[in-house]
Design a protein around this nucleic acid. Sequence first.
RNA 1: GGAGGGGUGGCCGAGCGGUCAAUGGCAGCAGACUGUAAAUCUGCCGACGAAAGUCUACGUAAGUUCAAAUCUUACCCCCUCCA
Length: 417
Amino acid sequence: MRYKSSFLNEAKARGFFYQSTNLAEMDEFLTTKGRLGYLGFDITAQSLHVGHLIPIFLLRLFQKHGHKPVVLVGGGTTKIGDPSFKNTTRPILTNEEISLNLEGIKSCLLPFLTFESDESGAVMVNNADWLDKLEYIPFLQDIGKYFSINRMIGFESVKAKLTVNDSLSFLEFNYMILQAYDFYKLYSEKNCRIQFGGQDQWGNIVCGVELIKKKLGKEVFGFTNPLLTTSSGQKMGKTARGAVWLSKDMLSPYDFWQYWRNVDDADVIKLLYLFTDVEVEKIKKMESVKGEELNAIKKLLADEVTTIAHGKDSLKEIHRVTAGVFGDSESDLASLTSIPRYHLTKANIENTSIIDIMVEGGVCTSRGDAKRLLRGNGVCLNNKAINEDYRIPLNLSTNDVLKLSCGKKKHLLIVLN
RNA sequence: GGAGGGGUGGCCGAGCGGUCAAUGGCAGCAGACUGUAAAUCUGCCGACGAAAGUCUACGUAAGUUCAAAUCUUACCCCCUCCA
């Protein structure tokens, strides 16, 4: 199907579209540039991770097509916690934590969106600005009367919480109402007529659309994206060392790149559509690629996403490190700045155990952890497995730098001096 | 307020006086095979220790016992039903 608005066409082609209210109207509405659309971020953590990328790239696309993304941070709603489909109540954060997280999230978004004051410049708003001031009785009279409990407990997101061993507190139940109120507020004050969100947000979004229709008699639109799972059904963005963070302080660009380089075969094309600027037509041609040749596409994916998230300059270094780590060359080990280093004086080689180096160098969490890895033959020194003697062989002491590998993907440089 | 059910390792979930650092599943790590993929197979998966072993852990705190995740008491939290 073809849409009138370029945004919807591309959003659909790239896999951002799950469902929406009144699609035809929204399409028409989006043919004019400079429209406002908002998306809410929960600010329960200081940094965003790969799991947040769909909404981020969706807003990015919205901006690319000349519209104005509104980033709503939930300074107010985070004090409640969205219960939708969750089986644990979110921890409630203090004001200090929230303002700290807010700053972190802002800086995470900078590479993806342009915050300028032109027609399509993104803006950031905080719903604490209006939610914190609400007065209970006036709010109930003014807004609460438009909500039907009968209707709300029919939503899947709510039903899921009304089962055995789970319950929905009144506090959490209000989340939906407040999110609807956000939409109402943004519409009436900024003429923002679209709300984006994940498919699990559908109920909450529809609530807002209905509130505005009932109270003001105006039509606004909801747009949801599919939730991103890997082909094996896992939530995206989790690795051994935790979430794949977008901030380079929490995850180095090198590790970020590696994450994309190692995605499942079945996911590459999908991710290429979602998280790169590679043209839709070009990606279509790659869809038939199979087997080993997919590796080239994974590299393309990694390059593109990393360029957007961390800038072009980081790429050169990443490629050098990758060649050093996965290639055979040991010549320029010393120049690999992205790999953690451990300094050792040559005099101490004899009485330093590799176990200590692994723990102090941060590649293992405990001595037991290191020993297990050694016993399982998972440790190499300059590409040679270490078997019985957990010491650095003396014949290597003439080198300046040694490469200690824990498994294939984790490395530590031992600098001798 | 009353009655009942429950809180176990990252998650799910057994165990219900010693053989329990705790069955099993998922997740994770390493090895083999490969393509820095997946699947499969093998090993590992609390801390310290070369090891023997020691310590810390089954909601919290006391207690009974030679011995407690398992029994008792109090407290906290969660769920269901009734008021």
